[in-house]
Design a protein around this nucleic acid. Structure first.
Lengths: 341, 341
DNA sequence: TCATTTTAGTTAAACGTTTAACCGAGATAA
DNA sequence: TTATCTCGGTTAAACGTTTAACTAAAATGA
């Protein structure tokens, strides 16, 4: 069996309290005793048991990470990247991450993740959209919470969000800087906050440059922003408008769909039409031409969330902190400068 | 504060021992008392504290997952997929997964992951190659171990491995079935067991079909099996052999490199040369033509590892279990049937 | 009928820490 | 000189469970 604090105490001829005080670096211990105890600790290769510590300290050293099961299983590894970012950050800290998924149709009859009921986490990171019923039930246990990439309606908790407005601004400004004026926006469900924000950024960029907003250039729909719907959206948009020279798609999947449509219809990219996406997924580099996009640092989102929850655990007065994680313009080959030299 | 077993006991007018026995479904309790206690438990929404349980039971309900930091940070998410597979499987079980990375140059001066020293895991999954120094140090704590995608030299532990021989056989057989006879093998470091096994499978397929093995068709080198080295290998191979009609690359990265070389040199795929890879990475679907390959179920590897370690914890006599996880042939468009109809 | 076994529960120790309360000895202050 | 404070430690309770050992009552057996 592994040595306990008692073994150390006996061998060092002090009380277990003294050993504990040494471990926890109390000033109540003389340099001499401290040295002696430390020596025995090293000799025995003693390490305090986490279970015992957890019990008496009423802390756990664990952080829960919760997302819906379909977010976890999505082929595009958006939320799992966030999770890995949290894990990454946790490696060097003093917390372990416990993962749980909840059904995306979580209702009143559903139970909470085990680690909440059993009190084995000190705080919780919630990634992506989760059902309100879940949040409501969660509130009874007043655990520190932080939401990543989702802004719940009611709950007052720290938020770690992508700076979508800035991203939209960056994307549209890039196109404008390249001399484009007839710039289309292709988005999915406009009621989704991140898509709405990206559109806001787009509009703001046009305003900044004195370009008039043109409703006909903006296509949104309630459908899911995937490749197919990007394709379809482009079909509609280009059948009605012949003068579009650039497209800002609300994510890379749609951008790739747009690209396919244009390719299928004899446009060449970026010669005839420039395209910029949003996300920075692996596929961007593998298509031809590689897609210019706005990089969303998923890994960083997860890492940042951990930092925030750790702070929340320390000082509980960080309730309404909002962290906007900056995005980055990645210029590749799907956008072309059409200014005359 | 959350209710404790004491609260339940008082309210139900029994001892805490009785409550505990009820929770743990002992037969020593009458149906009547059991019902009464259960009712109070529900009323108070009582759930036993994991910390307390862990301490007294000398179990932790946690499994450690260890890999080297560079495996964790690799762009190609091979090992992180395995990790996510383990997490996936763990969601429905009674274990939590604690992640730790070790330096890939782990030496004697390095320390072991915190969860080992603090005894907060009941068993450990080790993914990918890890330094021997690490394994040696690990052995002092006799924790149940299982290795995934790596066969350590000494350590006797259960293994969860990819069935590489079967995969090589599958790949080469597919090409043979498509009428190819001059089939090249492009691999990286042949001393790496998985690459060696894939080559073995390839050879076995040739033997099975009575095709003579041709050394000139096999190219291996000690370099890392990435895209660039695939490109270079193809250059060498095709400059010396004009009659190759199909290539089996030891992984998809190399296969894509091969494809690029052939493209750059006027070959068209699969008309002139068929190509098959190994892994099934996301990129396969995005290149043109989509790559035929052998799918390695990374997720399943991780899930299987968890099952094995759980069993190892129960019965410690599973030391030399070896699980070969089957792979799957995924036919896409980079291979062509050249048999005459 | 009385000894024995079974049943259904209780008591109390144990798991390995932390920490409030205590204590004796030496230093300081009045 | 004596009261008070500081220093460096110890004692013992507490955290919330599980479980071995115990017990009283009921059932069984001869």
């Amino acid at each position: 069996m592994a040595p306990t604090i008692k073994d150390v105490a006996e061998k060092a001829k002090v009380s277990t309290a003294t050993v504990s005080l040494v471990i926890n670096d109390s000033k109540r211990i003389s340099a001499e005793t401290k040295k002696k105890v430390l020596k025995v600790i090293k000799q025995l290769n003693y390490h305090p048991s986490k279970s015992a510590r957890d019990l008496v300290s009423q802390k756990t050293g664990n952080i829960g990470f919760i997302l819906t099961d379909d977010h976890f299983l999505r082929t595009e590894p958006f939320y799992t990247r966030i999770f890995l970012g949290t894990e990454f950050e946790a490696r060097t800290g003093n917390y372990y991450i416990l993962l749980a998924t909840i059904p995306s149709d979580y209702g009143d009859k559903n139970t909470l993740p085990r680690f909440i009921l059993q009190r084995s986490v000190d705080g919780i990171i919630i990634a992506g959209k989760v059902p309100n019923a879940f949040i409501t039930k969660l509130q009874e246990y007043d655990l520190p919470l932080v939401f990543v990439d989702y802004k719940p309606e009611m709950q007052k908790s720290p938020l770690v969000l992508i700076d979508n407005i800035q991203g939209g601004l960056l994307a549209a400004t890039h196109l404008i800087n390249y001399g484009h004026r007839n710039i289309a926006f292709i988005g999915g469900d406009i009621s989704h906050p991140s898509i709405r924000d990206r559109l806001t950024g787009y509009n703001r960029a046009l305003d900044n440059s004195g370009i008039k907003q043109n409703k006909k250039f903006v296509h949104t729909s309630s459908s899911y922003p995937n490749r197919q719907n990007g394709y379809d959206a482009a079909k509609i948009l280009f059948s009605k408008n012949k003068n579009i020279t650039a497209v800002f798609a609300c994510n890379d999947a749609m951008a790739i769909g747009v690209m396919h449509f244009l390719r299928d219809n004899g446009y060449s990219i970026p010669q005839d039409v420039s395209i910029i996406g949003f996300d920075d997924v692996e596929a961007d580099l593998l298509i031809d031409p590689p897609l210019t996009t706005i990089r969303v640092p998923k890994f960083d989102l997860g890492a940042e969330a951990l930092r925030v929850i750790k702070e929340s655990i320390k000082n509980s007065n960080t309730k309404n902190k909002i962290i906007l994680v900056p995005v980055e313009l990645i210029v590749r080959e799907s956008t072309k400068n059409i200014r005359k030299k």
